[in-house]
Amino acid sequence: MKKNLIFKLAFVFNLYFTGLLSARAQDVLNVLKINSAKELHNFFTFTGNDILIIAGHRGGMVKGFPENSVATFENTLKHTPAFFEIDPRLTKDSVIVLMHDATLERTTTGTGKVSDYTYAELLKFRLKDAEGNVTDYSIPTLSEVIEWARGKTILNLDHKDVPLEMTAAIIRKHHADAFVMLTVHHPEQALFYLKNDKRSMFSAFIRNRKEYDDYVKAGVPFSQLIAYIGPQVKPENKELYDLLHQKGAMCMISAASSYDKLKSADERKAAYVNMAKDGASIIESDYPIETAEALKDLINRKSPKSRFFGKSGSN
């Protein structure tokens, strides 16, 4: 009888302990270990011996997980290391929140313009996933997301309606220039940010030779930018790869408006592989988990940049 009880208790304890370990394993995130602006610049420097980098466009598009939300970022990091392009917008009371559209209908249970609501008013709405399903998640502030991202990943702030001064100020307030970078659509925006913080890192629109020449003439340091060269693989990319790689700048292609629209997973996989083989160092996608799986055999695991990749809770 006593032996039977001991056996049952041991069995129950084993189930509990195994379940606890399983739960903890599920919470492990793939993180980017970057501790300073200098390390951020080095992480994105093209050397020819780099690790292919995945960027989650708005975090990613997975059923049950809305774009521009911490839950989605965490879900992506459970599967792959990545950085995230996100969309700050301004509320009526000047709180910076994450929202791609100027209006609420597509991604929330609200209606009308984001800028017509205070942040407190926006909190009563719930976010929708890409299929329109209502979730339990609310609209996050940029400050919340910056603090969540610290020690985990890199945020790339697109430019919507938030004044450049406010964007620079919030990065400064959070001491976040080691892991927050800025999308700039022309050199003048980059120069503004550099006046505020000479260590700023950029994702710059450089889609052709003229735009490349504009950045050269403006004196924006190529050691502090990645170049978004467009949404497609095309012959003209070759010139940009050569010019930008000589400057030490990585090139990014975004599949969000192009190859992510292909209907089958096999078609998308072939497109992602083709982007990497074309020469892109960074591939941005609405489906970062799927993209990472498609490209796993192309990862250069012997790169010195392996030091920047780790797991949460590990050294």
Score class of each variant (00 low, 15 high):
residue 2 K to N: 09
residue 3 K to S: 07
residue 3 K to V: 03
residue 3 K to D: 05
residue 4 N to M: 11
residue 10 A to N: 08
residue 13 F to N: 08
residue 14 N to C: 13
residue 15 L to F: 12
residue 20 L to T: 02
residue 20 L to H: 08
residue 25 A to V: 08
residue 28 V to F: 13
residue 29 L to A: 12
residue 35 N to K: 11
residue 36 S to T: 06
residue 38 K to V: 00
residue 39 E to G: 00
residue 44 F to H: 10
residue 44 F to K: 10
residue 46 F to N: 09
residue 52 L to E: 14
residue 56 G to Y: 00
residue 57 H to Y: 02
residue 61 M to C: 07
residue 61 M to H: 02
residue 66 P to C: 08
residue 66 P to V: 09
residue 66 P to W: 06
residue 66 P to D: 03
residue 67 E to M: 00
residue 68 N to T: 06
residue 68 N to Y: 14
residue 71 A to I: 15
residue 72 T to A: 08
residue 76 T to F: 02
residue 77 L to H: 05
residue 81 P to H: 01
residue 81 P to A: 01
residue 82 A to N: 00
residue 83 F to N: 00
residue 85 E to D: 02
residue 85 E to A: 09
residue 90 L to T: 08
residue 92 K to Q: 09
residue 92 K to A: 10
residue 95 V to Q: 14
residue 101 D to L: 10
residue 101 D to M: 11
residue 103 T to M: 06
residue 104 L to G: 06
residue 115 S to I: 10
residue 115 S to R: 05
residue 118 T to L: 11
residue 119 Y to A: 11
residue 119 Y to S: 12
residue 122 L to D: 06
residue 123 L to R: 13
residue 125 F to R: 04
residue 125 F to D: 08
residue 127 L to S: 08
residue 128 K to Y: 11
residue 129 D to F: 01
residue 130 A to K: 04
residue 132 G to T: 09
residue 137 Y to A: 01
residue 137 Y to W: 03
residue 144 E to V: 07
residue 148 W to N: 03
residue 152 K to P: 03
residue 160 K to L: 10
residue 161 D to G: 05
residue 163 P to E: 07
residue 163 P to N: 07
residue 164 L to Y: 08
residue 165 E to L: 07
residue 168 A to C: 06
residue 169 A to G: 09
residue 170 I to Q: 11
residue 176 A to K: 06
residue 178 A to H: 05
residue 182 L to K: 01
residue 191 L to K: 02
residue 196 N to H: 14
residue 197 D to K: 10
residue 200 S to W: 04
residue 202 F to P: 08
residue 204 A to W: 03
residue 208 N to Y: 07
residue 213 D to H: 02
residue 216 V to M: 08
residue 217 K to N: 06
residue 218 A to Y: 05
residue 219 G to Q: 03
residue 221 P to G: 14
residue 227 A to T: 11
residue 230 G to C: 00
residue 235 P to S: 15
residue 239 E to K: 15
residue 239 E to Y: 14
residue 241 Y to K: 14
residue 241 Y to A: 14
residue 243 L to F: 13
residue 244 L to H: 10
residue 244 L to G: 13
residue 246 Q to R: 15
residue 247 K to I: 10
residue 250 M to T: 07
residue 252 M to W: 06
residue 254 S to C: 00
residue 256 A to S: 13
residue 256 A to I: 06
residue 260 D to F: 03
residue 261 K to E: 07
residue 264 S to E: 14
residue 273 V to L: 14
residue 273 V to I: 15
residue 278 D to M: 12
residue 283 I to S: 07
residue 284 E to C: 06
residue 285 S to E: 01
residue 286 D to C: 06
residue 288 P to N: 00
residue 289 I to M: 05
residue 290 E to W: 12
residue 290 E to I: 02
residue 293 E to I: 15
residue 295 L to G: 11
residue 296 K to G: 09
residue 301 R to Y: 12
residue 301 R to V: 13
residue 302 K to Q: 11
residue 303 S to N: 10
residue 304 P to G: 05
residue 307 R to M: 09
residue 311 K to N: 14
residue 311 K to Y: 15
residue 311 K to L: 15
